[in-house]
Design a protein around this nucleic acid. Structure first.
Lengths: 254, 254
DNA sequence: GTGGGCCCTGACGTCGCGTGAGGGTCAAAT
DNA sequence: ATTTGACCCTCACGCGACGTCAGGGCCCAC
């Protein structure tokens, strides 16, 4: 056995998979050892191990062996193409999962506001439109500075932090809903004060939030398109009310 | 059938899985419909659908049905605990994949410098130490401002961008290697100029990079622990040389 | 020359469903 | 009142990607 040849055990370890897996790949012809010893031992070359590594990578990304086979068979695909492709698949998964995190934050926030999701809402959030919905939300917002900051901060929050955050937000939101239902105009000092509390809460827990940023948020709230808050789901008309209060508060402070 | 009850087809659609999957979950007792119609039809309640949704979510995160069963069975776990847990699993996957992207960028950069990885390097990068290596690299660096910026920028690069980036970096690295091999001291103007070109390249393609930041990078390079560059793998001793040149260049400019 | 570690080839088991076959159910349209 | 067609039921076998023995060779060190 030459120096740059490996038996199954070694090759398997190098590729980070089991011996049985190599046997399987040999059986189905996906990756076969370039040589056999006189005793019938499989001998994998460096190139073979590289192929195995590639397969393992694609597998971890969830591709089926058939797909991988056609990728490997395509002689037009260079090593760099493979790396590019793997990178794409990875970033795809990352943005998908990031979108799912947004959905969870959505539901956590909804619960923070003391509202469980109805079956209809769950349908929209977790049902068939799940990915499409989450992805569009992530695209609308996902590249903004605020989103990145929020992701970074919230990733570190403990369960206690979340509990506190939610409690505070729930108090603000309940007060806003009460104000609206009691006929207090959104331009009243009370409503504006609540808007200001909301701004401070956002700045404290999620991301920097001056009055200009807060105004932008308000528009998203009104359109019920902001991941993490759907005021109309709490009380119909509340999103418009919150929007108006935030704008009034921003006007007030200059 | 009451209004808040659904037959298999409907329940399956709400949960975003196949009918057969619901049959299977029923068979193994993971999620069973709370009622059957007189004709033997499975009737799923809202609560059942919620459980199904949860299972689907955990499945997408790669958990086995057995694990999910024990999670669902644990009556100490509230709805919010589930959401928290799912969020953790997601961010785990995200950082794992982000680490894998770093590894790919590593190899792309190595190729950019005109150097294919040797089997030994591949072993370190893709072999059994893969996850540990990538994860430790990500932890060392993963929370820094520079990393985030780099991720954000590079995510948008086209293949052409990468090609250009790599070409430029390869030219700089080759020049540095030549300088070292020809005995030019790292404190010479030529080496310092190359360090400066490297700094500008980094600032242009990856993240803001003043001289102080560049110095920090230099230390990582010297320790060969920086994802994306391993100068000693190109030419032994080059990492120290690059480090010294960067420091000299930083000294020079202030 | 023998023990322990590696390798071989079957071949059956597992998990999470997919995919029929053969047959009831139900509401609407004829 | 029946027929149509969409839905539902229960077997039951199939599949992908291996895991896991069982029974047997190879190889090298002591």
């Amino acid at each position: 056995m030459a120096d740059d040849e490996y038996t199954v055990g070694t090759a398997a370890e190098l590729a980070g998979v089991s011996i049985r897996t190599l046997h399987h790949y040999d059986e189905i012809g996906l990756v076969q050892p370039s040589r056999r010893s006189t005793a019938g031992y499989r001998l994998y070359s460096d190139t073979d191990v590289q192929a195995l590594t590639r397969v393992a990578f694609y597998r971890e990304l969830g591709l089926e062996l058939g797909e991988i086979a056609s990728l490997l068979a395509d002689r037009d695909i260079t090593d760099e193409h493979h790396l590019q492709r793997q990178r794409e698949l990875l970033t795809e998964r990352i943005s998908h999962f990031t979108a799912m995190v947004s959905v969870i934050d959505h539901e956590l926030s909804a619960r923070a506001a003391g509202i469980g999701l109805t079956p209809q809402q769950r349908r929209a959030v977790f049902g068939q439109d799940f990915v499409a919905h989450a992805t569009s939300a992530a695209q609308k917002w996902g590249d903004s500075k605020e989103f990145v900051q929020r992701q970074q901060r919230t990733a570190r929050y403990s369960q206690q932090d979340w509990a506190k955050l939610r409690e505070e937000l729930a108090a603000i939101n309940r007060a806003l809903a009460e104000a609206m239902l009691s006929g207090t105009p959104p331009t009243s000092p009370l409503a504006m004060d609540l808007a200001e509390r909301h701004r401070e809460h956002t700045a404290r827990w999620f991301h920097d939030c001056d009055h200009a940023t807060h105004r932008e948020l308000a528009v998203h709230y009104r359109n019920n398109e902001r991941s993490g808050q759907n005021y109309d789901a709490m009380v119909p008309g509340l999103s418009q009310y919150v929007h108006d209060a935030i704008v009034a508060n921003a006007e007030r402070s200059g």
